[in-house]
Design a protein around this nucleic acid. Sequence first.
DNA 1: TTTT
DNA 2: TTTT
Lengths: 143, 143, 143, 143
Amino acid sequence: MNSVVLVGNLARDPELRFTAGSGKAVATFSLAVNRPFAKEGQQNADFLRIVVFGKSAENCANYLSKGSKVAIQGRIQTGSYETSTGEKRYTTDIVADRVEFLSRVNKENQGGFGQDDFGGGFNNNNNPEGFQALDDDDDDIPF
Amino acid sequence: MNSVVLVGNLARDPELRFTAGSGKAVATFSLAVNRPFAKEGQQNADFLRIVVFGKSAENCANYLSKGSKVAIQGRIQTGSYETSTGEKRYTTDIVADRVEFLSRVNKENQGGFGQDDFGGGFNNNNNPEGFQALDDDDDDIPF
Amino acid sequence: MNSVVLVGNLARDPELRFTAGSGKAVATFSLAVNRPFAKEGQQNADFLRIVVFGKSAENCANYLSKGSKVAIQGRIQTGSYETSTGEKRYTTDIVADRVEFLSRVNKENQGGFGQDDFGGGFNNNNNPEGFQALDDDDDDIPF
Amino acid sequence: MNSVVLVGNLARDPELRFTAGSGKAVATFSLAVNRPFAKEGQQNADFLRIVVFGKSAENCANYLSKGSKVAIQGRIQTGSYETSTGEKRYTTDIVADRVEFLSRVNKENQGGFGQDDFGGGFNNNNNPEGFQALDDDDDDIPF
DNA sequence: TTTT
DNA sequence: TTTT
């Protein structure tokens, strides 16, 4: 059993690539998960490397950017590799089975007024698969 | 082991009461958790009864209302009782250890323009204990 | 987001049925999840109705029985129905995405010496899909 | 929100130390979490560094050893440090809020016949706090 | 007896 | 209507 749930903000824009063999989409990004009880001067967030596959990866690349808030369900995956100088390094990633979008930053308008809450009318489905019904108007009301 | 994580919207305003013995605060509310893959005509959410204790209960009563979005970490608790006619009924509640506020609806202004997103910059601490740093300004940038 | 992880013991043997339309297997059972801090005289477990589909349902029916210990990953699902007298009743089930077998009770030998631990060495795969590699020898070393 | 649940086996005996300031107990160990769908020749487990504090840490040191099976509830914590040559390294630990014992290996008898399942009679509480009612007999029946 |  |  290996189950992880995180809610946090993208620390950087997602990167999208495709596997050599099957051409499957793979998105990676860094997620900042706030530590609610961090004291002044302490590290106040944990930074996790998130890996997403398939259609969900494409949705992440298309709709998320630095600052976007997401909820993630997945599992922890560890690995290792050797540096060019022959040293062993260990990695820890979160492989996401599900990414739920809680806000986004408009990619054309980042740092400006582009961030909207995913409000959505009744029946709104704000997750990557079957993604629709964005709040794309210009007001500041999230739904 | 009994661990639950939910992200959803309050289906009604929280109710606050205090235990007879110690006067400890207890908040209860119904949480609507959307089903991302619900088809047209199907039930599109699960409705869970959430129970919160102590300081966190008071924060829920003060800062949340119908429509607010929260993330909850806790455990499932089952129980039973007898009706006035002697029938046995079973209950299932979620006892929350942690409630993270993802949005709120301003209680004085509900149904209007009162809903703000909880900022969520890396430095922001948007949880009930030590609650602070709301994004209360008038712009539409969440951090 | 709706994620549940439970570790507990089957309170009764699983029941297996098949859906009317597609003939898909559905197993249901009651899981007793111990409350670690229950005081003398208090309820010391929560009892959840677990629903499993497909090949995993068949494995549950074949390898689990009353008393078996399992870890479950899934989601909470609520529903409602009307009694024959027209009263509305509410239900809460756990729909399992994954069932990991931590022990079983031999179905031919229940109540006797049939309970074996599921090994669990690093190479062992003790989950319903691709179920194999039981520790069926007569010693008491689990790997 | 940062919630992790793992079920796995200790890859090594726990190490116990005490904090410099308050003398609080801290246990650390490596947990092997099996990957149920690993193919022949692939890495078949993830190895996580677990950190436990307080009374629970002492129970881990006293009752667990290499091979013991546990369920863990906690959170992911990342950090960084500098090597003696000035390079930055990143760490990822699991800080455990709860450790549930699912089996142990007798510390005096490791590698032999010492591993018993935590069976326990009715009302048994097999978790670190208030730890009791071990199955210490010599037979191979877990309860 | 429901949210978005 | 319960497990260990």
